[in-house]
Amino acid sequence: MHIEFSVNGERREVDLPPMTRLLDALREHLDLTGAKEGCGEGECGACSVILDGEVVCSCLVPVVQVAGASVRTVEGLARAGELDSIQASFLKHGAAQCGICTPGFLVAARDLLDRNPHPTPDQARDALAGNLCRCTGYQAIVDAVVHAEAVRE
């Protein structure tokens, strides 16, 4: 099936069976390997992307569902070589260790910050509850999100 959609502001097209997972379409057919597979069943958030302004697990989304839609992945956060404030904040606070969960967290955090640029720690924890991290203990991630705007300033 021929499917067109926008990825990180660019028009992309794929020819794939309609039930192909969006995660596989991105990773195997569009060469965007930033989103990761941690569980394959919507529980770890490593595959998170923003689909039309909403964070989704791309391992649960059939590619047919994104026809005409707009997808944002971790590769689309930095612009013109400049890191997004949440990326810079992750570096500063040590919020990425092994890094396998990081693309998913960044996407979910970006989505939160777009709606609420100054979240409290509890709001950050709530917004990131769909993403698992086994390395950091979350405190550094929460700090990075809460202080992301300060990093920009």
Binding site: A35, G94, G99
Partner: peptide
């Protein structure tokens, strides 16, 4: 900041 940090936060 960690040396592999930029690669990890950009998905590279």
């Amino acid at each position: 900041p960690r040396g592999d940090g930029v690669a990890k936060v950009t998905g590279k």
